[in-house]
C-alpha cells in the first residue's frame, strides 16, 4: 500500500464506444500529473475514478481499498474529491450556500466552520462575494469556488481537472499558489493540465495519456524538463497520426 490511488487495467467508455483501453497507474509516488492531447480520455479516467462513470473492467483502489464502481458519494465520503473540468457548479446558489453543500459528507460536517475560515484565507477574493450567486461569477472566481467546495469536503486526495482552463496568466498564478498551499497542507493531488510548466511545478509523477492508454510516464527521479515533455507530447501525437 505504497500509494494512495492505484488504478489497474481500467477499461471504460460511453455507450458502446470504448475510450480507455487498459489504463494502469499503480506506482505513483507523490502528486500525479496527467497530460496528453485533447479528447484522449483524461477526463474520462477521472470520472471513472470518482464513480461518475462505470468501469467496464479493471480495479481502482483508494488507500488500499477497492472503490471501483462505488456510488460517487461513497467515494467522496472516503476523502477522494474530484474538481471536474469546467464545473458550472450550482448557478442559483450563493457562494456561501455552495460551500455549505461542500460540507455535506458526514466526516466534513464537524470541521465546517474551521474549513470556511481556511478557504476564506486561501481565496480572499471570495470572502467579499459571499452571498453572490455562482452564475454571476467570473470564470476565475468560479474555479476558485470549485476548489473551495472540494476543500470543504475534507479531501485526502484532490483531483483537479484542468483547473486553469481558459484563465488569464495572473489568475492562473494565483490559483497555482493556492493549489501548492493545499498540497503542502498534506492533500495529495491528481492534476490534469495542458500547461506543462504548471504541471511540472505541481506534480511529481507524470503520465501521458494518449488514445486511452498510458503512453509514457516520467518518474520523480527522471530528469523532467519542459523540452523533453514537449517532445514526448508532440512526438507521440505525430506518430499516432501516421
Amino acid at each position: 500500500m505504497s500509494t494512495l490511488l492505484e488504478i489497474r487495467g481500467i477499461e471504460t467508455g460511453y455507450g458502446r464506444i470504448k475510450i480507455l483501453h487498459d489504463v494502469t497507474l499503480d506506482n505513483a509516488s507523490g502528486n500525479i500529473g496527467l497530460f496528453g492531447p485533447n479528447g484522449h480520455g483524461k477526463t474520462t479516467l477521472l470520472r471513472c475514478v470518482s464513480g461518475l462513470l462505470r468501469a467496464w473492467h479493471g480495479e481502482i483502489r483508494f488507500d488500499g481499498q477497492v472503490i471501483t464502481n462505488l456510488p460517487p458519494r461513497r467515494i467522496v465520503e472516503r476523502g477522494l474529491i474530484h474538481v471536474s473540468q469546467g464545473n458550472r457548479l450550482f448557478p442559483d446558489l450563493t457562494i456561501r450556500e455552495t460551500l455549505r453543500l461542500g460540507a455535506f459528507p458526514r466526516r466534513a460536517r464537524a470541521q465546517e466552520a474551521q474549513n470556511i475560515e481556511r478557504v476564506a484565507a486561501l481565496f480572499p477574493k471570495l470572502r467579499e462575494r459571499w452571498s453572490q450567486r455562482v452564475r454571476t461569477l467570473s470564470g476565475g472566481e468560479r474555479q476558485m469556488v470549485s476548489i473551495a467546495v472540494a476543500l470543504m469536503s475534507e479531501p485526502r486526495l484532490l483531483i483537479l481537472d484542468e483547473p486553469t482552463l481558459g484563465l488569464a496568466p495572473r489568475i492562473k498564478d494565483e490559483l497555482c499558489d493556492a493549489i501548492k498551499l493545499i498540497s503542502q497542507a498534506g492533500v495529495k493531488l491528481v492534476v490534469v493540465e495542458q500547461d506543462v510548466e504548471f504541471l511540472l511545478d505541481l506534480a511529481d509523477h507524470l503520465y501521458l495519456i494518449n488514445h486511452g492508454e498510458v503512453a509514457a510516464e516520467v518518474r520523480p527521479g527522471d530528469s523532467m524538463n519542459h523540452e523533453a515533455i514537449m517532445e514526448m507530447y508532440f512526438g507521440r501525437q505525430t506518430s499516432a497520426l501516421t
Binding site: V83, S84, N87, E97, R100, L101
Partner: peptide
C-alpha cells in the same frame, strides 16, 4: 443543508454527485 441539496440537484446533477449527495 438538506434543502440546499434539493435545490442543488435541480441545477447540476454531476456536481451533486461530486459533493457526495
Amino acid at each position: 443543508r438538506l434543502g440546499l441539496a434539493l435545490r442543488a440537484v435541480a441545477q447540476n446533477e454531476d456536481a451533486c454527485h461530486l459533493v457526495g449527495l
